[in-house]
């Protein structure tokens, strides 16, 4: 320990001394007179990231892999032996509660605001007449959720006879080395087989365009094809696209300056976006910190900002990533 420290410090001192000595007469950094080259930044993600699984893509010759899904494990039978009860208990998962869009609540009658009661002459306020609601009735009926289709669960699950053996750790596979004469015929064999198969595939592909096959492939460099509703998490907003989104909201936000305790106020807005970039439904506003009146003004200014900014101009092919946007408003660095 001590020795190490000594060696280390000696070495450091030596390097520093050497540096101080040898860099004494360093030349000035001269900038050559060169012309500037215009550089354009292009988000590389659109090139590198697979766009597999895009619902909008035209059907490709070969099916895109569909992400495998773990089927819900059935509840274990609780009343073993009691056949009646057990037959009654179903293995199917209870149906998911489908969120039904409630119709807009009826416009509430306005509550009279407390008046800044002025002196003698300016009397306090009676209730102002409620505004005539002009709510449009949505012509479209509430859509049923496009539920993803799953294969029906088997009623009974065959039990494996024996427990699968865990993979044994393998050591060096030196013995697998094979002689060249043994390998050669095998190789040609498989090659011919593949040839046949690939031509078969081509014919099949020409004849019928296929739906996605289920496989667990996460990524592929294959061309986009009609795939799963959700892409394989392969797309994500690039840095420049995120910056554009942030810049747009910042432009839309009129900051209520000079609020007391603005430093510790935070507003988080969650909104669902439709494919055309418009806001789908209501925005959810959560505010914390500050005094209540200031907090309300602050959260309303944030809400106005996101509403004003809609529709959002975001890459359509990455819709799944921005179907929900969370915006955090943090003024702590502003004041």
């Amino acid at each position: 320990m001590k020795l190490g420290a000594t060696i280390s410090s000696t070495a450091h001192v030596a390097i520093l001394l050497w540096g101080a000595y040898s860099y004494q007469g360093v030349k000035k950094f001269e900038i050559a007179d060169v012309e500037a080259i215009p550089v354009e930044f292009i988000p590389i993600e659109s090139v590198t990231r697979s766009i597999e699984g895009d619902t909008k893509a035209t059907k490709a010759e070969t099916p895109a892999p569909k992400p495998t899904k773990k089927p819900p494990t059935p509840e274990p039978a609780e009343n073993i032996g009691d056949s009646e009860v057990d037959v009654k208990s179903t293995t199917e998962a209870p149906p998911k509660p489908v969120p039904v869009e409630a119709s807009a609540p009826p416009p509430e009658a306005e509550k009279p605001e407390p008046t800044p009661v002025p002196t003698n002459e300016v009397a306090s306020l009676s209730e102002p007449p409620a505004p005539v609601p002009e709510e449009k009735i949505d012509p479209e009926p509430a859509k049923a959720e496009d539920a993803e289709q799953f294969a029906a669960l088997p009623d009974s699950v065959p039990l494996p006879v024996s427990r699968p053996k865990p993979p044994q750790p393998k050591t060096a596979k030196t013995q697998k080395r094979k002689k060249p004469d043994e390998v050669k015929p095998q190789k040609s064999k498989t090659a011919s087989k593949n040839k046949n198969k690939s031509s078969d595939d081509k014919i099949a592909a020409l004849l019928n365009k296929q739906d996605p096959a289920a496989s667990g492939k996460k990524r592929s460099s294959k061309q986009a094809s009609l795939g799963a509703r959700k892409s394989n998490n392969a797309s994500r907003l690039s840095r420049s696209e995120m910056d554009a989104l942030r810049g747009a909201i910042e432009q839309c936000w009129n900051v209520p300056i000079g609020l007391s305790d603005a430093e510790d106020m935070r507003v988080t807005i969650t909104m669902n976006l439709a494919k055309d970039g418009t806001i789908d439904g209501r925005v959810n506003v959560k505010a914390s910190g500050g005094e209540s009146r200031a907090r309300r003004a602050f959260s309303e200014s944030a809400r106005r900002a996101v509403l004003k900014c809609a529709p959002y101009n975001l890459p359509n092919e990455k819709y799944d990533t921005w179907s929900q946007v969370i915006v955090n408003f943090d003024p702590s660095q502003m004041f």
């Binding site: 959700k230 942030r246 009129n254 900051v255 900002a305 990533t321 179907s323 929900q324 955090n328």
Partner: peptide
């Protein structure tokens, strides 16, 4: 695996409200 975008807004328009 979260399919949402989170944006942090730390500055805005310090302009009079129209």
């Amino acid at each position: 695996g979260r399919s949402q975008v989170t944006v942090d807004i730390t500055k805005g328009n310090v302009e009079p409200l129209p």
